[in-house]
């Protein structure tokens, strides 16, 4: 069960992508906190979406590393496990932030999710006898990715990281939307791109595209909770980001494809 099949030779090593992902996620979340706490407006809500995308790039690299061992349950299972386990860290981190200070929420979420993931990875590797060398590290990383992505999408929707502002997010059920949008954005890119011709930059571009696509939905939802200006800023940035990354993804797909046929609809035949 543990034959390693190398996905995408070369490319940036996992450690560097993980570090970049964590830094993007944490810095973006703190910019959102600064906007909400220091400057007193919620126009920086869109940085939550940037944080989610940073975390998703990290998570995609972790999924690629884990699934190169053949876990037998499919790539989507890793995305589901990531978000299922990350959610507990996210809620507990926010609760801890409510007791102390909003500034520790991103770090608290990251640490609690990492601990949850380590224990789940230990269970999978020893009790369930999976014996995959990167299992513990990967599940820890995936739990952290799930927690940070949900936190980022939540920030887009409600403008800040506080517990009080977040009740609408849970009570109305936006959390379920964020959960599935994040999980699909995490599991889809590698599931779609995997195979012998997988290249790292193309997969990462698909991650960014999926991240912005999720952010569009959260930006639309955010009009309920944030000011109209902040909602429009998030929505426009998400749409521009999605359009640019989609175009780039198509260009990279054309580059990697053996042949490309731009199929045309049969309009001419119909008219004749």
């Amino acid at each position: 069960m543990s034959v390693k099949v190398e996905a995408s030779h070369g490319g940036i090593p996992h450690g560097k992508i993980a570090a970049a992902g964590i830094i993007i996620a944490l810095v973006s979340l703190y910019i959102a906190v600064i906007g909400h706490e220091v400057l007193g407006f919620d126009y920086f809500a869109f940085f939550g979406g940037i944080a989610a995308i940073g975390a998703l790039i990290w998570g995609n690299s972790a999924i690629k590393r884990l699934c190169s061992y053949g876990i037998g349950a499919g790539v989507p299972s890793a995305g589901m496990l990531a978000f299922g386990s990350g959610l507990f860290g996210m809620f507990l981190g926010i609760a801890i932030g409510a007791m102390t200070s909003v500034w520790i929420i991103p770090v608290a979420v990251l640490v609690i999710a990492l601990i949850t993931g380590v224990i789940l990875g230990w269970i999978a590797n020893t009790v369930l006898n999976m014996k995959i060398p990167v299992m513990i590290q990967s599940l820890a990383e995936l739990a952290a990715v799930g927690a940070l992505t949900t936190l980022g999408l939540r920030t887009v929707a409600i403008g800040g990281l506080e517990l009080e502002a977040g009740f609408v997010f849970v009570a109305v059920g936006f959390i379920a939307v964020a959960f599935m949008l994040g999980a699909i954005a995490l599991q889809h890119p590698f599931n779609a791109c995997l195979g012998p011709g997988e290249t790292q930059d193309r997969t990462n571009m698909l991650v960014i595209e999926c991240g912005f696509l999720s952010m569009i939905i959260m930006a639309v939802i955010s009009f309920v909770a944030v000011s109209a200006v902040a909602g429009w800023i998030s929505l426009i940035i998400a749409i521009i980001g999605w359009a640019v990354s989609y175009k780039k993804y198509i260009a990279l797909s054309k580059r990697d494809a053996a042949a490309w046929l731009d199929a045309k609809p049969f309009v001419d035949a119909e008219e004749e």
Partner: peptide, 23 residues
């Protein structure tokens, strides 16, 4: 809302661990 999403999350964690067991 909170109980619903956490029950879903816990369900997914348990189901995926069981799936890893089945391989």
């Amino acid at each position: 809302g909170l109980a619903g999403i956490l029950a879903v999350a816990m369900f997914l964690v348990i189901a995926v661990l069981a799936a890893y067991n089945i391989t």
